[in-house]
Design a protein around this nucleic acid. Sequence first.
DNA 1: TATGAATGAGCGTTCATTCAT
DNA 2: AATGAATGAACGCTCATTCAT
Lengths: 198, 198, 198, 198
Amino acid sequence: MINLKQSQRSAQRKDKLIDTALELFSSKGYTGTTVKDIAKKSGVTDGLIYHYFTSKEEILHAVLAKHNFLEEVRHILQFHDELPINQTLFKLGERLLELMVSKTSFVVMVFGEAQRNKMMAKRLEELISEGVIALGGYFEGRAEQGEIKDLNYQLLARHFISSLFIYFMTYGRNCNKKEHNVYLKTVIQALCDGIIKK
Amino acid sequence: MINLKQSQRSAQRKDKLIDTALELFSSKGYTGTTVKDIAKKSGVTDGLIYHYFTSKEEILHAVLAKHNFLEEVRHILQFHDELPINQTLFKLGERLLELMVSKTSFVVMVFGEAQRNKMMAKRLEELISEGVIALGGYFEGRAEQGEIKDLNYQLLARHFISSLFIYFMTYGRNCNKKEHNVYLKTVIQALCDGIIKK
Amino acid sequence: MINLKQSQRSAQRKDKLIDTALELFSSKGYTGTTVKDIAKKSGVTDGLIYHYFTSKEEILHAVLAKHNFLEEVRHILQFHDELPINQTLFKLGERLLELMVSKTSFVVMVFGEAQRNKMMAKRLEELISEGVIALGGYFEGRAEQGEIKDLNYQLLARHFISSLFIYFMTYGRNCNKKEHNVYLKTVIQALCDGIIKK
Amino acid sequence: MINLKQSQRSAQRKDKLIDTALELFSSKGYTGTTVKDIAKKSGVTDGLIYHYFTSKEEILHAVLAKHNFLEEVRHILQFHDELPINQTLFKLGERLLELMVSKTSFVVMVFGEAQRNKMMAKRLEELISEGVIALGGYFEGRAEQGEIKDLNYQLLARHFISSLFIYFMTYGRNCNKKEHNVYLKTVIQALCDGIIKK
DNA sequence: TATGAATGAGCGTTCATTCAT
DNA sequence: AATGAATGAACGCTCATTCAT
């Protein structure tokens, strides 16, 4: 029994450490965060950290493993063909923004550290690619139905996703849902109908 | 008069130091780069750095001052109204990509450091805003001529610029001009005419 | 409970560090003493110093806290009125000299550092003032009893205390008790009866 | 001619450097003063310092040589026997205080540096001893005339001089002449007549 | 499990001094 | 005589990591 309780507490503690690490990495960056920082904020002694992780780098790995929202991205990207394209895009944008908002600190960390850390860069590219491929596939499907013009769908998808991403990072991080919607509507309307008056 | 040669060599050396710093900052980040690194790679002793700069931070400032391409961005953004919108956008995109390619390491550094360093964040926002405002103004002008639809031009501009930016950062960094053009054409065609078949 | 031994050894080590620091500060001055010096002389690595103290300045504070003899001075200065004035002064002088002798290196350090370091200057002034005020009060009391002449008792007290102090600093530091007594007798006799033959 | 002018300017410059050094040493201490500081404040380049002095230490020597007021102390200490003792002591005290006031920064430096620097300590002891011996001799002379009691005149002299000195250092440094006189009168009256009411 | 003492390489920075010009 | 570029050892301090308990 004791062992069970112990191992539970142990797991909880590890979890706490990972969450604290994410928080700190997000606000101060990986390099800017001290192992001592993590220990202190988690209410744990310095040495104990190395009972749970072999190195600072491994903490980062654990953070990435726990907060990897690739699954959630994939789930969002299961497109249903019943809706008109613009509504589908709007829903997608809405959900992606929601997801990014709910994981702001994680996104910020991955983004900020990606220049320095190969693994982080790979992770970032994975996330974006996942979206790009799925959305590109959706475009292609619509094209086969004769609904959209003949274009490079992958590039188009990348354009949409990455614009959303940078909007969130540099501008929309602190905006509310209403403002997000204005952005999404503007961008999607332009994307669908073009900006040129006929 | 006496020390013309010396002061020349001194200026050259300072220049060298700035360039070396840019290189290192770009590849390892500001925090990840040691003053000793800069000294060593420049073939200079540690102490001499502080003959030219008062601190590591000042080196960063010097790097930013030397490679500040705000001026160039402004120049690129002087729109001429003779051309059709899509051609104007294409020219703009082409030049912005050219500029980013020619200053890749600088752009990467500013981008990567912006999450951590207030000054860098400001610098980045300046760069993007500059483009957003100018392009937004251009859209507005075209709208007044009845050429484009009623939309939020600032958001539209931000969409175009930031998409370009992230395309470069995550994808186009190593592409050639031809590939850039494909991207630009796709994105601009979609932006102008929409993707929906009528 | 577990680490009683460890925490004991830790406390001892901290104590050792403080004592070593006092020794070094006294002989080489605060500025002239390196943190590495303290570490080396204590048989400890550089980094460990910062496990016990947050800065070199804090080591100084710890030294001051441990060797703060203000309390002892106060105790000495509790005058008893039973004795004749000259005997009271003699006892006071004797004890103050004893105290300074037993804390020679501390006194020397405070004195030497006071010109440069505001905190040390304040500390020194505190020590002297404490004595001056107490002794001045004693003089005043005796004056009210009609035992001493009408004079500025604070200045008189300062005169006595500071003379004692500089005697110790520049001359009596290495003298024995007998020599101290000669000094005290001479000075006190002169102070009480004057040097002029009537 | 040119050489004469040059050597004049050279001498002036050296003088300027010494004075600046004194100023800086006094306010920031010897260790706290940078050779660069001296150069800058003197309007001279770093390297030139070493054309005039072989080291920082030598600058200190030069400062001491130039501002050595032993001569002046000796002059002040030429006692004349016409006056009553208390007036003689008052005149002596007055002049010594005047001298210390006029050379405040020098006195402060010597005093502050004496704990760290053997040479400075020796210099300080020289100055004090000079006064002690002269004043002790004067006392002895008066004693032979039957004017003062039988006491240890050297200790008495040390008492008077050092009290004066510490009064200046810790208290009278910023007082005006009037306040000095109050101090001197009090101390001298007590010294001459004693403080005990008969 | 858990502690926190201990390590030691490395950080940004300072500064007396040297030296080519 | 004068410059200021250049040196390099040393400074106070940080921190990921190890380890005895």
